[in-house]
Amino acid sequence: MSEIQSIPSAGDTARDESASFDPRILVFTCNWCSYAGADLAGTSRLQYPANARIIRTMCSGRIDPAFVLEALRDGADGVLVTGCHPGDCHYVKGNFRAEKRFNFLKMALKQLGVEEDRVRLAWISAGEGEKFSLLVRDMTNKVRELGPNPFKAPNIKST
């Protein structure tokens, strides 16, 4: 699973001026940890790029790989699945299940030619507001470099 490698300074501007397109990142969050972490980024007024759209489920274990594939088919440029840190899952071990499925998904995506950085899994606790904001920033920048999603179905209009 990919984690953010470096910690850019919080003073970075939200958008890279040399961008040629504006990626759309779909973020799956779980009610107890990562959604709360995203909220904390808000209450802390941490600024990050406006490229992410969040969907909330009760547990990261709810995330069917089909949702990720559908997102790519519909034109999402990147998909980020987030949940509680291992051992912290509100439902005991839902996140372990999410990770297991995600690893299989990544293998399948690799065979399809989907780039490594387009689909990621990360653990965010309810106290990690800054980590959430940096993660969205990092993902947005990386996906921007990769370019628009080449896998979207032809009848979906692009942004």
């Binding site: 939200a14 909220d39 980024a41 808000g42 209450t43 600024q47 406006a50 969040i54």
Partner: peptide, 18 residues
């Protein structure tokens, strides 16, 4: 709010689109 206006407060256009 927490996931839009408060985190994109310097980008009103992008925040409105979002």
């Amino acid at each position: 709010r927490e996931q839009c206006s408060w985190v994109h407060s310097h980008e009103p256009e992008e925040a409105t689109t979002k």
